Amino acid sequence: MGQTAALAAGIKQCGGELIVCLDADRQNDAADIPLLIDKLNEGYDVVSGWRKNRKDAWLNRRLPSQLANKLISWITGVPLHDYGCTLKLYRAKYLKSLRLYGEMHRFVPAFAGFLGARIAELPVNHRPRTRGTSKYGISRTFKVLLDLLTVKFMDAYMAKPIYLFGGGGFVISLLGVILAALTLYKKFFLGIFVKDQPLFQVSIFFGLIGFQLILLGLLAEILIRVYFDIKDKPSYFIRHSIGFDFDSEVK
């Protein structure tokens, strides 16, 4: 089922206040866990391991990873040196509020950051692989890019998709109106008939596409509201409360 499914299953079974994740291929060193806990106790919600001295091939493992980490950090606004390091420590309430699917395991720190988690990074040990074979490499770069688009959408437009689809539809429709006006100008002032220029057909095409995008945004708004209602899931996350009990709100 993949690493994301395994991680989601493990999180579901956890009952403590802290959750630590690490790979089963023995490249992560469990002896680093106390160091992660010490760092977390400095006031953080997530401590991410950083394989500073990584024991993998440079061309097909470390280089793609470095490029991906820079891109993910830039797009999500949650800067980390090593998103791919599974050895991470979380306060359980942040993981319990997430719904992981697909290949989203590598973006868990970003999701926690979207919820307002305070994130730190700590160099950890990394050992050569002794069990299994890696499924990662340059060939997965395209999938990471697609997943990253999904993550960015969920961060910026999950609660307001009309801003994306409706905004794009409005711009395209406006462009169609401008082209239609230009077509009429050419007809009445320059004597160029509509049949002799393609701008009129293009303006109609842009108008239809813009209208459809606006409708898509409205449908997305309805679906988002149905999603929050069915899941009984609040559209906010409370890190700490004073005088109120919001534990039931964190799902």
Rank of each mutant, 00 (worst) to 15 (best):
L36V: 06
R61P: 02
F206Q: 08
Y94A: 02
F153G: 04
L95N: 00
F188S: 06
C14W: 01
H81W: 11
A156F: 05
S65V: 04
D23C: 02
L179E: 13
K186E: 12
Q66W: 14
G84N: 10
I238Q: 02
F237T: 01
S241Y: 05
I224Y: 08
Y94Q: 02
R127M: 13
I214D: 12
N53A: 06
K135H: 15
N125W: 01
P123M: 06
D82I: 08
K143L: 11
D29Q: 05
D196Y: 10
W74E: 14
E42T: 09
L213H: 11
L115K: 05
A120D: 03
R131E: 14
L179T: 01
V202A: 12
S139H: 11
K135I: 07
Q27P: 01
A30C: 12
M104L: 15
V194E: 15
D232T: 04
I75Y: 04
S139C: 05
K231M: 13
M104E: 14
A92Y: 02
L35G: 13
G84V: 02
L95H: 00
W74G: 05
H240S: 08
I230T: 08
P234S: 01
Q3C: 07
G167D: 06
D155S: 09
I19T: 07
A57F: 02
T4I: 05
V78F: 01
L208E: 07
T133Y: 12
F142I: 11
F165Y: 11
